[in-house]
């Protein structure tokens, strides 16, 4: 695994705008190593409140990174900026070799398809079966029926819910519902998965299971960015951890157990 902590490097590799397309096509080494790059990114809401202020960071492809901080520190905002659920108001944000600050409205859905998002409250459709919930990203992308079935079962098998495919989410436990949400996030094999407090409502035992699942995804090359305030769990895993406070990046390093 590559640990990219090269915040200082970005000034040296600053590029003029005109070259953006060529560089994107050429896929430079620098871009391959940094899947996510924030350059002085701020998000200011109408009314003046800043969700995140002046954030600069890089996350390399294949990393598994934790994002911690108190409630309201800007963890969710940061994730939402990456998935383009919100747009930054200042700075440059590159994800997957794409400049999100310049992405047009009609291109947003195609970006979201390449980022799997796991929400704390699962965001499942309660009138659809587990299978249909997990299939949604593939249906949205217009995959054929057979391909959808194959991939959904593979994803459900991954999270250990294959035998519950016909159940309605409401009949599942909290941990199982979260795993359905995870299956939905990975079913389209996105290179990047974001998780916002994925263990927020789960007991320690279930939390450990979920984290083990994430580690397995990471081992097959998925880049993960996980927001959590479960510091014990983060320390045990010993991964790179970003600490946010009042919208600013205050600490960055390996968390030690």
């Amino acid at each position: 695994m590559i640990f990219s902590r090269s915040g200082k490097r970005r000034h040296a590799t600053h590029r003029p705008r005109g070259q953006r397309m060529e560089e994107a096509a050429a896929a430079t080494v620098e871009q391959e190593s940094a899947l996510i790059r924030f350059d002085n990114v701020s998000k200011r809401y109408p009314g003046g409140h800043e969700g995140v202020s002046n954030i600069s960071l890089e996350i390399a492809a294949g990393e598994m990174v934790f994002l911690t901080g108190h409630s309201g520190a800007g963890k969710s905002t940061l994730l939402r900026l990456i998935a383009l659920l919100e747009r930054s108001t200042r700075g440059q944000l590159h994800v997957n070799g794409r400049n999100l600050t310049r992405l047009q409205r009609r291109d947003i859905p195609y970006h979201r398809r390449e980022v799997g998002v796991i929400f704390q409250d699962h965001c499942l459709l309660h009138d659809r079966t587990v299978f249909d919930n997990v299939a949604l990203p593939l249906v949205v992308s217009g995959l054929s029926h057979g391909e959808v079935g194959r991939r959904v079962r593979a994803a459900l098998d991954n999270v250990g819910l294959l035998q519950r495919e016909k159940s309605l989410p409401i009949t599942l436990s909290g941990g199982e519902q979260q795993r359905v949400g995870i299956a939905r996030a990975i079913v389209s094999k996105p290179p990047l998965v974001l998780a916002d407090e994925p263990t927020g409502n789960l007991d320690p035992e279930l939390s450990r299971e979920i984290m083990a699942l994430f580690e397995r995804f990471n081992q097959v090359g998925v880049t993960l960015l996980i927001a959590t305030h479960d510091l014990d769990l983060v320390r045990k895993l010993g991964k790179r951890t970003l600490v946010l406070a009042q919208g600013r990046l205050v600490d960055e390093g390996l968390a030690h157990g």
Partner: peptide, 16 residues
């Protein structure tokens, strides 16, 4: 998911 996630080719968007 058993397979390695495909490397993104940056210029390509699903739209194309």
């Amino acid at each position: 998911m058993a397979r390695m996630a495909s490397q993104p080719s940056p210029a390509r968007l699903g739209r194309s």
